[in-house]
């Protein structure tokens, strides 16, 4: 009987094809969504008018960026602390604890900072965007905007997308600084590395390229998270339950996409720049 049950729940070849198809459909829809939002915004700019309200952009920037600083800073501070402590004890066995500053700085600047920031932003802001736009969709507010002749994509999605696109790299920088600062405290307290020496070690090991690659990644993470969140919000169907379902789906999709994109980015990057 367990075998029969397993057979029933395991997706068959046709179901796998259907899952793949629906995945590709979703992917296409999100790209269509980004392209349409961009087109609608540019059309408006060509008419010589502001594509959205500046107040709306600043409100979203404060919410997505400034209000996220404590969370991102604190989480990365603790992670930097833990990372320095755990790697420090291992490196100390070989007498190479002076590698800690470089290790933490490179790991966070290139990889962990942008990635963790992306995950936190997806959970905190992506969910909020989807729930907010989803509720507007259910209450016919989005349709009312469209009925007035106002493009809902440029009016609702564009300021959110631009805010996350610009603010995610800033948050990523905050996360890097918090982690490096935390590791400097550990280095001082446990491994007798003074702060000026710590800074020299960070400067020696960190390349401009590491910083640029992390920042570039963060821009893309911000755009992807905002696009997925807005797309999911504006396609809510089925009332309050639909808002709940799409909010969960938005967070799951955004986190998966961020990690997936990060992997692809790293594979391509390390192929072109192996060192």
């Amino acid at each position: 009987m367990p075998n029969a049950e397993a057979r029933r729940t395991m997706p068959g070849p046709l179901e796998v094809v259907e899952i793949e198809r629906s995945f590709l459909r979703e992917l296409g829809s999100i790209f269509w969504f980004i392209a349409n939002t961009f087109q609608e915004t540019m059309e408006r700019v060509q008419q010589g008018r502001a594509p959205f309200r500046a107040a709306s952009f600043f409100r979203e920037s404060v919410r997505a960026g400034v209000d996220s600083v404590p969370l991102v800073g604190l989480v990365c501070f603790f992670l930097g602390l833990t990372m320095a402590l755990l790697t420090g004890y291992q490196l100390q066995r070989f007498g190479t604890e002076r590698l800690i500053p470089g290790l933490v700085a490179i790991a966070f600047t290139r990889e962990l900072g942008p990635l963790l920031t992306g995950i936190m932003v997806a959970a905190r802001i992506g969910a909020a965007f989807t729930a907010e736009l989803g509720t507007m969709q259910v209450n016919e507010e989005v349709e009312a905007i469209e009925a007035m002749g106002i493009g809902p994509l440029r009016f609702l999605a564009a300021p959110r997308m631009l805010a996350l696109f610009l603010l995610t790299p800033c948050l990523s920088t905050v996360s890097n600084l918090a982690a490096v600062f935390a590791s400097s405290l550990v280095c001082k307290a446990y491994f007798s590395i003074a702060f000026p020496y710590f800074l020299d070690l960070v400067k020696d090991s960190l390349l401009i390229r590491d910083i640029i690659t992390g920042i570039l990644k963060s821009f893309m993470f911000g755009l992807l998270i905002a696009s997925i969140a807005c797309y999911r919000g504006l396609t809510v169907k089925g009332g309050a339950a639909g808002v709940g379902t799409n909010t969960t789906s938005s967070v799951v999709t955004a986190i998966t996409t961020v990690i997936g994109f990060d992997t692809v980015y790293n594979v391509i990057y390390t192929n072109f720049y192996p060192t």
Binding site: E141, E143, A144, I145, A147, M148, G149, I150
Partner: peptide, 18 residues
């Protein structure tokens, strides 16, 4: 969008931006 500017719509549940 241009044509819609000549048409007003009042929704059943008003659909005011909350």
């Amino acid at each position: 969008q241009q044509v819609r500017q000549h048409i007003g719509m009042v929704y059943q549940y008003s659909a005011l931006l909350s």
